[in-house]
């Protein structure tokens, strides 16, 4: 089956889960990435049970800090 992952169309094994895709794509800090499939968020804790289908569009959304240091301190 073909998936569009982060804008690139690629062939994957039929019926893989989002968790498997995260592993195949070597996603950095996978436990803190937000995944969307066809413009819906994949709920936390359902990556293992969310099965992907031919034609699905998947995006990985990463935490990114940056800017300056210490403008906020507790």
């Amino acid at each position: 089956m073909f998936l569009t992952v982060a804008g690139n169309q690629k062939e994957y094994e039929n019926g893989i889960t989002v968790a498997k895709l995260v592993e195949l794509e070597n996603v950095e800090t996978p436990q803190y990435v937000t995944v969307s499939v066809n413009d819906d968020f994949v709920e936390n804790g359902t990556l293992e049970t969310t099965v992907l289908h031919d034609g699905d569009t998947v995006e990985f959304l990463y935490f990114m800090g940056g800017g300056n240091a210490r403008s906020i301190l507790y």
Binding site: F63, G65, G66, G67, N68, A69, S71, I72, Y74
Partner: peptide, 12 residues
């Protein structure tokens, strides 16, 4: 405009 570098600040 959020120009902070850390996540607690960004959520705040």
């Amino acid at each position: 405009l959020d120009g902070t570098d850390n996540f607690p600040a960004k959520f705040l």
